[in-house]
Nucleic acid binder design. Structure first.
Lengths: 234, 234
DNA sequence: ATTGAAGTGAGAGCACTGCTCTCGTTTCGA
DNA sequence: TCGAAACGAGAGCAGTGCTCTCACTTCAAT
């Protein structure tokens, strides 16, 4: 990770300037979106030569990648915090907290949401650095479902058929999170995931006529419906 | 709309060149995505000066808009054709056809899908020209649900509560399509929509480890599940 | 303490982009 | 027939990502 305590004055300055670049880029991103993110504009904002910025981020994509990682971690923190406020055995409450935390964050940071969970940025292939922080929300969901299943909760609706090949493939993912989950429930969790992000994307990107829907109410109802489908009670 | 029969030789040439520009741009889009779409590259491809292209499309965004409209229409045609192959009273079959047509098209044209239903292109606000073709799939879904409800079909699960404000707001949309649909079923249809596109987006954009999921099987199961939730039988 | 390598910032410059303007030329309708 | 409109080409402007070179500063090993 990051060096624990930068000793030399130069290292401190480097860390600070790196932070300043990220902040400036972040501000640009929040304002005008990822395409408008310009290395030269960041340099202008910080009163430095554009070439100097390249001492800190080798490429524009590298800068974008750093922003994506920060966005993932920001969302991950927010979700973890919201879920932790509920009692461990309040599975419906935990699910509600998770879902609403994701939506609230997405509404508050639409450009970051587009960057992380929207369609990939043009010509930009997510580097491996982003996959670990990118799984934090799904890990939280897996943890939740795993706890619920361990407590004897089962989905009331008929289970999906899970092909043998998938059963074998799902195992390693769960191992990575360190959790146990029946394949059927895991697949159901994936559908839950898709529904959650589908609704958020619809609200953010959908060409919905303004004011047609009270998304607060609508989203709450969908979340509760999904929770019921998962057998979390309510 | 478009002039029905261009008489003069110049008008014909203009139509042909417009078509050629769109084709070249389309090819670039399919290859490298929307960000790489370059007016100059199109001009090079067609052996003309870049300034000449601007006689046909006032701006890069205008060219992109034309491509988006064509994408919407292409998908709309495909969906309409697939749905029309089923008997009018085979509601589950019509729903399956619609859902799979959307997914098949998205998988075959990922960049176009991102352009139309993914996160909006950076700094690009969808002009009003795109809203009509953009509603073709949702219109098809509304038509389907309206037919189903008219045939006495009701969703088996408990109905969502629909605030009065939304009831009033939903009306005009349905009028625009020329259909009747109870507010509860309409909201349920919106959730269906979000689930459908959520799953497709997850398959296309999701940072899913390759080979983890057999999306053919998974998607089919989800579609059938949604169909059952809508009370379409099966 | 000195020296030399590494890190840093600035500036010029390349290749590319979207877009504009001007210039002759062609086409077409009145 | 004549004049307006449309057209294609070229030059040019402002902006971009990125590279290279050049001075200068910091820092660590001698």
């Amino acid at each position: 990770m990051a060096p624990p305590a930068p000793r030399t004055a130069r290292a401190v300055a480097r860390a600070e300037l790196t932070r300043a670049i990220l902040d400036s880029a972040q501000a640009q991103l929040a304002e005008t979106g990822p395409a408008a993110l310009s290395v030269r504009a960041v340099a202008r904002d910080l009163d430095m030569a554009s070439s100097a910025v390249y001492r800190y981020f080798a490429t524009r994509d590298a800068l974008l990648t750093a922003l994506i990682i920060e966005a993932y971690d920001d969302l991950g923190d927010q979700v973890d915090r919201a879920v932790a406020e509920r009692a461990d055995d309040d599975f419906l409450g935990r699910w509600r907290a998770l879902a609403h935390a994701v939506r609230d964050w997405a509404v508050a940071h639409p450009h970051q949401y587009a960057l992380t969970y929207g369609s990939p940025v043009p010509g930009y292939a997510a580097p491996t650095d982003t996959v670990v922080p990118g799984t934090r929300v799904s890990s939280a969901l897996i943890t939740l479902l795993s706890d619920a299943e361990a407590a004897g909760i089962r989905a009331p609706q008929r289970a999906h058929r899970v092909p043998a090949a998938e059963k074998a493939a799902i195992g390693p993912i769960l191992d990575h999170v360190g959790r146990r989950l029946s394949p059927g429930y895991a697949v159901r969790g994936l559908a839950t995931w898709a529904t959650l992000f589908g609704h958020i994307s619809l609200e953010l990107f959908g060409h919905m006529h303004q004011g047609v829907l009270d998304y607060d109410v609508h989203f709450s109802q969908v979340v509760d419906q999904v929770g019921a489908d998962l057998g979390l009670g309510g």
